[in-house]
């Protein structure tokens, strides 16, 4: 192996090992440690100067106590379940909002499509934080939505949306909408129009042609979009902290508070490890879906 090749491989490899993989080993180690009032706030700490004996006593002090603590305290498993529920519901809601938009884009004329594409991507480049923030003024009790609904007379007193789970749903749908639209649009755009014509010639109504031909062929895009929304939504921190209020329990927020407010590093690390284990399933499924698509395209 020549030196140049070695340098090319080793530079990014070493970087990722040091700054990505080793940190996770540390998280794992601290998750197995005990909370202590010291700096750093956990024990045991590895004492390499004691040699082999030091390593042995270090390893013997690690245990799964924090994980059994997570399983015994209702706060944590409720937070995991509520995150899973919120992520699942908002994925479905995002799909319902995104599909008609992607469909409309795919049916628009050739010259319009690049512009529509750009309009979908533009919000993605805009700060996530600002986009979430923009909903505070709309959803709050004296916000624009309530003002408007009161003015039209549809409601007689303001709806309480802000600081509830409903606001979190709105925030997730809004922030992740482009991630759902783009893969569905990509699937619909490739679709061969003659298939639909054939279905209609054979006596399908427009509606049944959609459900029998168009929709099944767009499913790979739908699946990709659902994963792209579900995976980040599960660990979401900004949206529940800005829009969800104290009503919304999500695991990303619990982890953050465990670390910064309670300063319990071992429990925060254990929360992270479990979240990671939960995420592995959808991530592997997503990779498999992508792989299948790539092979189908070749």
């Amino acid at each position: 192996m020549n030196l140049r090749r070695l340098f090319l491989i080793l530079t990014p490899y070493a970087w990722l090992l040091l700054f990505f993989l080793i940190p996770f080993v540390i998280v794992m180690k601290i998750a197995l440690s005990d909370y202590a009032i010291s700096i750093p706030p956990y024990t045991p700490t590895l004492d390499l100067s004691a040699g082999w004996e030091g390593i042995k006593s270090f390893l013997s002090e690690l245990d799964f106590e924090n994980f059994s603590f997570l399983a015994s305290d209702a706060l944590y498993y409720t937070a995991y379940f509520s995150s899973l529920k919120i992520a699942a519901v908002s994925t479905v809601l995002t799909l319902l909002v995104a599909y008609p938009i992607a469909y409309g884009m795919a049916q628009a004329s050739e010259e319009w499509r690049p512009t529509l594409m750009m309009l979908v991507i533009l919000p993605f480049w805009t700060s996530f934080l600002i986009r979430v923030y923009s909903w505070i003024g709309i959803l709050s009790n004296e916000g624009f939505l309530n003002q408007f609904l009161l003015w039209t007379g549809i409601i007689s007193e303001p709806l309480a949306i802000m600081n509830t789970q409903k606001a979190v749903y709105v925030g997730i749908v809004y922030s992740y909408l482009p991630f759902m639209i783009l893969p569905i649009y990509a699937a619909l755009e490739k679709l061969d129009g003659s298939l639909i014509e054939a279905a209609e010639d054979l006596g399908c109504s427009k509606m049944s042609a959609f459900w029998l031909v168009t929709f099944p062929l767009s499913i790979p895009g739908v699946i990709a979009g659902c994963f792209l929304v579900f995976i980040p939504a599960l660990g979401e921190f900004v949206i529940p902290s800005l829009l969800g209020g104290s009503d919304t329990l999500m695991i990303g927020k619990v982890l953050y508070e465990e670390f910064f407010s309670n300063r319990d590093w071992p429990v925060a690390s254990a929360v992270a490890v479990v979240l990671l284990l939960i995420l592995i399933i959808p991530i592997v499924l997503f990779q498999r879906n992508e792989q299948k698509q790539r092979e189908a395209n070749q």
Partner: peptide
């Protein structure tokens, strides 16, 4: 999730 990357 960013909370995990950040913590790690």
């Amino acid at each position: 999730p960013e909370v995990i990357t950040g913590l790690a």
